[in-house]
């Protein structure tokens, strides 16, 4: 839970500035993770980008304001998408939600045919909650590479956000 001071500070600071600062740190963290997965070090990335090792080390402190060109070059040499656009994310959510809606409808029909009105309503709500929760879990698991699966803990806040998004879209 963020402190009151932090939440108040964010109210005052323009979103653009917040994203610049938080974005530079998150890209640095992402590069760290990919290098670890690929069993590479900062020196390897420096060689691949034809940059000095000290420059790359600075990038990985999370204090660098990355330009898009720099991010693109890093994405190219590491063969990963460091930036996933909102429209791509939304399209993925929509596909998954559509599938989920179909499954919910099937469950609802089954429940309606097996129980009375009150019972079917309770059954449907709990099924919906259960389905949303497990779908969100599976969706999050897609982002975790197999070799690291089990070693990464998904924060409770991230899960809550996912449940919220899945159940409110």
């Amino acid at each position: 839970m963020a402190s009151k001071a932090y939440l108040n500070a964010l109210k005052e600071i323009p979103k653009e500035i917040q994203q610049d600062v938080i974005g530079s740190i998150s890209i640095a963290n992402e590069i760290h993770l990919i290098l670890k997965q690929k069993d590479l070090c900062a020196a390897d990335l420096a060689r691949m980008l034809n940059k000095s090792e000290s420059e790359i080390s600075k990038w990985l402190t999370g204090l660098h304001n990355f330009t898009f060109r720099t991010v693109r070059r890093i994405s190219e040499v590491l063969e990963v998408d460091l930036v996933v656009t909102n429209s791509t994310k939304i399209a993925e959510y929509e596909q998954r939600l559509e599938k989920l809606q179909k499954e919910i409808n099937i469950l609802k029909n089954e429940a309606d045919s097996n129980f009375g009105f009150d019972e079917s309503l309770n059954f449907t709500v709990s099924s919906l909650l259960h389905e949303s929760t497990s779908k969100a879990d599976r969706y999050l698991a897609n982002f975790i590479p197999h070799e690291t699966n089990g070693n990464i803990k998904i924060k409770a806040e991230t899960k809550s956000t996912m449940y919220y998004q899945v159940s409110n879209c």
């Binding site: 963020a2 001071a5 932090y6 500070a9 964010l10 600062v21 938080i22």
Partner: peptide
Amino acid sequence: KSVYFIKMWIAEIGE
């Protein structure tokens, strides 16, 4: 803009 940057860093470092 510079002041907001500094405020954001103060908040991020602090939190």
